[in-house]
Design a binder for these strands. Structure first.
Lengths: 203, 203
DNA sequence: TGATATTTATACCATTTCGCATTAAATTGA
DNA sequence: TCAATTTAATGCGAAATGGTATAAATATCA
């Protein structure tokens, strides 16, 4: 079960890289890219700066890794929720409600989505971040479109609804939930929006 | 027509404050808050730093003023478009198409919305920005809800549609258009989304 | 036990950033 | 013409930032 059969040669790490990365993600999620200094990252992860650089690279690399990890986690969770529910509207509602729950978490207050709410700020002047952002958005659209397509095949979709045209509106609701949560809007409003969207977009 | 009947006492300004503010807005819109330094702002506006401080205050104050001005401009434009079209779906489509056009502009590439794409990044750690962000989002929801209410009164709205529940989904489409534009997505995709949303949400 | 390899901690450096003090310039009013 | 008033430009200094050099610490392997 060990990732490496034998221990590597030198002094072993005194920290868990995965746990440290989770803390790094939290730091960026809360403060965004620009307002989070390398010192902040070191403090958040408990690592000294040289260890941080050695383990994860510079600030930019850490941020990209954070986007990757969060994007993959989101895709996995959304995919699972979409698969689990047999009814389309119910599946959409589950995803939108789950997004609401995630976006309202946060030590300092609701913090929305790392990708939607912090990567966008950088994406004009940073083509690498922009490309990663686009990838995550595309993947989410594709995931939802596939679920609409499944509903169509199963006869669970009203004729005249084009999965590829309709799916982006579901993702749009997710984007807006992220923005609104980070703006401090009430849970009641977000949940009403999630329910309304699930009902309207599935028929 | 002069703003001031008599000229003020000392050395007159050598710059147009409104034009300078427009340049400042552009700088923030492109780079976001964190990545835009005061030097960047000075360069963009053509002002020396002390003049910048004297005229508009510090970076934070300038950013808040930018959010104000952009928010008011958006509200005015959206309000006018919503008022102009007698049919609800057509009015929504006009607003969403106009948003698409604005969000795809930008010297360095499409830059989405200043408020949705840059203020969100700061809004967890900066309560003042968060409050302003919430105000703008609320105002937009209210504007759209009022248009739905007008449609209801005019018999242009299907019964069973609650203006207050439905309006946030229109704003949600706007938020997503902003995010997607800044992620570099194609105009065709944005326009299709705008049209689909206008059609689906109005009935 | 000692050579080798890797991580950690201290501390440093160059650069950027912010904000302002100071001085020069331009205009009005007497 | 000269004092008063306001803006503009130069440039300073403290603090923060990103990144790394160096050396001590901790482990494996022979």
């Amino acid at each position: 079960m060990n990732a490496r059969a034998v221990r590597p040669r030198g002094r072993p790490r005194s920290f868990d890289a995965d746990a440290a990365m989770a803390q790094l993600i939290d730091a960026f999620w809360q403060g965004g890219y620009g307002a989070t200094s390398v010192d902040d990252l070191a403090r958040a992860s408990g690592l000294a700066r040289p260890s941080l650089y050695a383990a994860f690279g510079d600030k930019h690399a850490i941020y990209l890794a954070a986007l990757d990890r969060v994007g993959q986690g989101m895709a996995a969770q959304v995919g699972a929720l979409l698969d689990a529910e047999p009814d389309l509207a119910t599946a959409l509602r589950a995803v939108l409600r789950a997004a609401t729950d995630v976006y309202l978490e946060g030590a300092l207050g609701p913090r929305g989505c790392l990708i939607v709410c912090t990567a966008t700020a950088e994406s004009v002047e940073d083509p690498v971040i922009r490309a990663k952002l686009a990838d995550v958005l595309d993947a989410m659209d594709a995931l939802v479109a596939a679920r609409f397509e499944r509903a169509r095949v199963e006869g669970n979709l009203a004729p005249g609804i084009d999965p590829v045209r309709r799916a982006p509106l579901v993702a749009a609701t997710i984007h807006s939930l992220a923005v609104r949560a980070r703006a401090g809007m009430d849970r009641a409003l977000l949940e009403a929006m999630a329910d309304e969207a699930a009902a309207v977009l599935a028929r």
